[in-house]
Nucleic acid binder design. Sequence first.
DNA 1: TCGCAGTGCGTAGTAAAGTACGCATATACG
DNA 2: CGTATATGCGTACTTTACTACGCACTGCGA
Lengths: 118, 118
Amino acid sequence: MSDKDERSHLVGLGAFIRSQRRLAQLSQRELAKLTKLSDPYVSQLERGLHEPSVRVLRALGNALNIPTETLMGYVGLTDESAADIDTASAIRQDPKLSDAQKAAMLEIYKGFTDEAGK
Amino acid sequence: MSDKDERSHLVGLGAFIRSQRRLAQLSQRELAKLTKLSDPYVSQLERGLHEPSVRVLRALGNALNIPTETLMGYVGLTDESAADIDTASAIRQDPKLSDAQKAAMLEIYKGFTDEAGK
DNA sequence: TCGCAGTGCGTAGTAAAGTACGCATATACG
DNA sequence: CGTATATGCGTACTTTACTACGCACTGCGA
């Protein structure tokens, strides 16, 4: 019974959704329309007030171009099979980038992560 | 896509859960105890009457030693959203980057790929 | 100044997920 | 035979996901 209701992961999920929505330049209402959800519910999700269903997670992943597994991870799928996508390797494998461009982006990425990495 | 969504996938999920439970030589009540669910709910799930939450799917996968992904597949995770591992999504998902840093890198990436033709 | 359109959110209500309790059948043992 | 136990399920109930409606605030143009 040590499993006290731990809902902090919902806050993490909410923060992630919010950041992804902003990166996609969408308002809560626009995202709601894309996912066929209500606007207040999007707001509630972003503040970690609810644990969304699989259907909702799928709609969100779809609208924001995020693999659904990633969303699942925030809800707690992560007991195994964590599909962690490494940004650096994604850049290196990207066929749309030249070698020089890859180097540039990796350099920038390194700067960002080193600085925050503590 | 009619709103009158057929829920046949739930029937498939239920049949799968039932077969796995029997293979594990468990009664519905035993599985319910393992997953901390109620026995009638297990019965209802096996007959496709409800769409379980992520939390429940994880508990079931855990108790029956089934990778959670497999369960998710029955709910509809796998219908699409294939591993679209492109650089842009990797950047957006990267927990090591701030939103501002993500925006910056995406801007750079956009510049590179736009310029490259297309 | 005045709308006015767009944003995020509080809140009361509806729909669906999940539970408590009990019934019916089946097998087993005295 | 009776009854004890284990199984799966019907159903009313509680809890939670999700929606409808509207309020407060922020720019923006007349």
